[in-house]
């Protein structure tokens, strides 16, 4: 949609009214103070679990097991982090997560943008039927497929391989649909000029359509990456070998082994949380905007 492109661009600057707007709250001091207090309370509630986890992670296990409510009593130490990094499995799982999420993202983006372009501009028979089936597939919960997919992976002899984790995740009908709607909004005149000059369809796609679609493709890529990074049930079902596990699966499977050691538990949780927090800080505006314009990212 061209509207989407426009909003993506204009939203860079927050709309004027939102900054210090008296619209919703009136000019009175009391409502403003109330709103501010409520906001602070909510934010504190939402940040508290993080803060508690961080504090726990920088203490020794003995201190964690003895101090009362004041977590500041214990001495500061990075032992927990050191022990986790020395053990090495968290680093290995992080590597697996990066590799798997990156490959899922790459394949999904390539396959989905191509399909979306074909569905938007194509004239082949069955195009509408395929579009209908794709939209219907958005409704199918991935959990429904877990049992038969596992059966299929057993048949292909792929259980406990990267391929088994990655391949079923690259089918993203929602992303195809979002991209297709975006391509529909790109004016065709631009492409026609190139076609008259004799450019092939692939060339038109690569040098005209794709450059215009960079924001939406980036948004899709970010959300596919986050989804793959956080995906739990499928990787959990299809991997038994701890060396092949992703971060969420590895932590969940092995946590029982050292679940009592809360400092280490919190340190590894925070290490696992770090990459996506960084991704969010880097792409904050794009993530917020794409949720806003496409409703992207809903599970």
């Amino acid at each position: 949609m061209s509207a989407t492109a426009a909003t993506l661009r204009t939203r860079r600057r927050p709309p004027r009214e939102t900054a210090g707007s008296p619209l919703l709250l009136g000019h009175g001091r009391l409502p403003r103070a109330l709103a501010g207090t409520a906001l602070v309370v909510l934010a504190v509630l939402w940040l508290l679990p993080f803060v508690w986890a961080v504090i726990t992670s920088v203490q020794s296990e003995e201190d964690v097991n003895t101090t009362g409510l004041s977590p500041f009593k214990g001495a500061f130490t990075l032992d927990a982090y050191q022990q986790i990094l020395e053990r090495g499995n968290v680093t290995l799982w992080a590597f697996n997560s990066f590799l798997i999420s990156a490959l899922v993202t790459l394949i999904t983006v390539v396959v989905s943008t191509l399909a979306a372009y074909g569905l938007s501009r194509g004239t082949f028979r069955g195009r509408k039927a395929l579009l209908g089936v794709t939209v219907a597939a958005i409704m199918v919960p991935p959990q429904l497929l877990v049992v038969p997919l596992f059966d299929q992976m057993t048949l292909f002899n792929l259980v406990d391989t990267y391929a088994a984790v990655i391949l079923p995740q690259v089918v993203a009908p929602m992303m195809v649909f979002i991209l297709k709607r975006f391509f529909d909004g790109i004016p065709k005149e631009l492409e026609e000029a190139a076609r008259i000059d004799g450019a092939s369809e692939l060339r038109v796609f690569r040098s005209i359509v794709l450059p215009l679609s960079r924001p939406i493709v980036a948004a899709v890529a970010i959300f596919v990456f986050i989804g793959a990074w956080n995906n739990f049930m499928w990787p959990f079902v299809v991997t038994n070998d701890p060396d092949l596990m992703t971060l969420p699966v590895g932590l969940a499977t092995v946590k029982d082994a050292y679940g009592i050691q809360y400092a280490q538990s919190m340190a590894s949780a925070l290490l696992a949380a770090l990459p996506l927090i960084v991704v969010f800080l880097l792409f904050q505006r794009r993530i917020v905007n794409s949720v806003a314009t496409t409703g992207l990212g809903g599970s």
Partner: peptide, 15 residues
């Protein structure tokens, strides 16, 4: 408000 949404499920349950 949005940061927790970015956490993998295991991290959330561990915390």
């Amino acid at each position: 408000f949005f940061a927790p949404y970015l956490l993998p499920v295991t991290v959330v349950t561990m915390i």
